[in-house]
Amino acid sequence: MRASLTRRACAAALLLTSTLTPAVAMAAAQPADPARPVARAAQARLLGEKIVPHKLAFEGTTVGGLSGVDRNRCTGEYVFISDDRSYLQPARFYTARLDVDAGGVHAVDFTGTHAFRQPDGSVYPAPTAGDGKAVDPEEIRVDPRTCDYWWGQEGDRPKTVGPPVIQPSIQFASPTGDYLGQLPLPANYEVTMAERGPRRNQAIEALTFGAGGHQLTSAIEGPLLQDGPEPTVEHGALVRVTRQTRGGRVLGQFAYPLEKIFAVNDPDSPWGPDTGVPSILAFPDDPDRYLVLERTWVAGAGYKIRLFDATTRGATDVQAVDSLAGQTVRPMRKTLVADFDTLRLSTVDNTEGMTWGPTLPSGERALILVSDDNFAEDAVTQIVALAVR
């Protein structure tokens, strides 16, 4: 999550009830076609959780900021990406063994770490004034065909004129972090100073392979500037989800309806509410179906983490729609799978990453999620396992 967790110190929450039927900002959503019944949504239950020690020292690095996770079928291990923008150590990822079964999460053992390399072989330096080489790592996926790593980073839209724009990207890396290439992205993912494209810190934070690794789907964390305002307690927003071939050809772009803000922000807080889509995950047997994670933080109320079962089937292809504001589109349909407030976790924190885990004896599939502690003292790195059917 992009905002400082010192905002969490507010106490009393002024909660509002979420309708789970988002009002779409500046766009009219067509109703679902009654002739196309919605398939039975996934259901989830808690298996267990494990808290990683805060600022765990590992191989000369500080473990934290874990904002994405995936399972490597070639090794059986998991890979976690850190969103440290090279402030503490160079931008990097970790590998780990997770002991997860029907009885819960028994152990998290880190096994390695590597820095991401630039095309010239160097590591990414910390951002400085006038330096356009910094990155903002947010998501990582293991290529189901090669077991190389594909990772997404948000880039940077400068707050003021002068510093360079850093474009978001999806790159490929070897298992040791060496640069292997970059995926061409749709034009509307580009940050421009003409107030178009992704908002600051609301670019690519979610990506997933689908169709047996033949397709890659990514999501923008929040609405594009040209697509309308961010969500409020009164209305939601539309964020763009893009499906591409491995070579970058756009197969379709869809509008995902982001929930409205679930609570009134503490008026005394210097921080406003923060919401978006930090992760999506394709269902192995359906290229049109995804688990979508929505993460919201509100001063005085804390975090709201919700998991949805969503489909692009029947949704309007909006890749040729310049602006969603004022347009009538049929968004992706979605159904609530889990609200973390109901899972009886030790805490509900800044959950940002998820991946499929092992199949359980019950026939359910384990879902592994991780929270990003932003290296803050009042946050945790929490590994959660759910059983999904």
Rank of each mutant, 00 (worst) to 15 (best):
P257M: 13
R117N: 02
G48R: 04
S269D: 02
E49H: 12
G357S: 03
Q244R: 15
T245D: 06
R295W: 02
A173K: 11
V38L: 14
D227C: 02
R141D: 03
P90E: 04
R92V: 10
L324V: 08
A13M: 10
D83A: 00
G357I: 05
T19R: 10
P37L: 08
F262Y: 04
L5H: 10
A366Y: 00
A42L: 15
L14K: 14
G212S: 00
V264C: 10
R71K: 10
R141W: 05
L386K: 03
W356A: 05
P53Q: 07
D373R: 04
V161Y: 10
T311Q: 00
F308V: 08
E259H: 09
G302E: 05
L225I: 14
T359F: 07
L367E: 00
D156N: 14
T351W: 13
R71P: 04
A3G: 05
A387F: 03
L180K: 13
T192L: 06
R7P: 07
T296F: 10
H214V: 15
D156P: 09
E377P: 11
Y94V: 05
A39W: 08
R71H: 09
R40M: 14
Q182L: 09
P137Y: 01
E352I: 04
G272F: 06
N201M: 11
R36F: 09
P358M: 02
A134R: 09
L46P: 04
G363V: 12
A134W: 12
L369R: 03
L207T: 02
R85M: 01
L15R: 14
Q244N: 06
E190L: 15
W297D: 13
D378Q: 15
R141G: 01
E59F: 13
T275W: 13
Q171C: 14
G300C: 08
T359P: 03
P53V: 10
V318P: 02
Y124P: 09
Q319C: 10
L88D: 05
